[in-house]
Design a binder for these strands. Structure first.
Lengths: 121, 121
DNA sequence: TAGAGTGTTTAGTATTAAGTAAACTTTTAC
DNA sequence: GTAAAAGTTTACTTAATACTAAACACTCTA
């Protein structure tokens, strides 16, 4: 990699929207809340550096009050929680995932619904 | 990390079993087939170094004629294919995975079966 | 009994991801 | 028009992952 414009643009958009009503969302203060340097955040927002690692992105999403999966997806990263979930069932879950590949979002959601029903079996 | 005895032991076991009937499974020759140095393989098999990255583990599994998920799981790594699958459906699949967390292997397999049936809907 | 082949040890290196400090420029508020 | 605050730039750093080359020691066999 070497920068990600879409992630940076979206991040700046979200941060500046928050800044309109809350002065702790300046670049410098937001960087500090997230736990990164202003230098780094500036470069990330302008798409010059790669997005930070997943944990920091999740922290950003929490502070900005958005779904972390949106930002993670723009950053092309995976929530590390998912890796843990998969490692807990290292044979069944890879099989499931390979099976649902090729299904549409809607079909996957139907399946998720069935999983919920199955819980009550 | 700093070494993984279980992975190393299993790897050596599998390689030595193959070696009994096929002389290309010496440590040096196997290392070359996999694309790593004998130095590294020696340390990995004795649990002194961490397992190689996922791609090399998959190559090993292929050469050793075993399921790559077994070795990946011992190495505590995830098949990079799964990350790709998740990134293709970055909202639906995280939801599905978080939902199946806590389900038993058997329940997950039932669900995989339903995915197969759903394909014919 | 030496040469070929085996695994091992010593002593590192290469690559990538994930950043930082400090000085600088620009903007804002007064 | 200046002080404070905001964002940016230049020039590097740090930490982790994933390894390697070369020399060594042991074993086997011809």
């Amino acid at each position: 990699m070497a920068g990600n414009k879409k992630f940076g643009d979206r991040l700046r958009e979200l941060r500046e929207a928050k800044l309109k009503t809350n002065p702790v969302f300046t670049l410098r203060k937001f960087a500090e809340s997230v736990g990164i340097s202003p230098t780094f955040l500036s470069k990330v927002e302008r798409g010059e550096f790669d997005p930070p690692k997943a944990e920091k992105i999740i922290k950003m999403a929490t502070l900005l009050d958005v779904d972390s999966d949106e930002l993670l997806s723009l950053a092309n990263k995976m929530d590390p929680e998912l890796e843990e979930i998969i490692k807990e069932k290292p044979t069944a879950l890879p099989d499931l995932l390979r099976h649902v590949r090729g299904m549409s979002e809607a079909e996957i959601r139907k399946l998720t619904q069935r999983a919920r029903e199955q819980e009550q079996d």
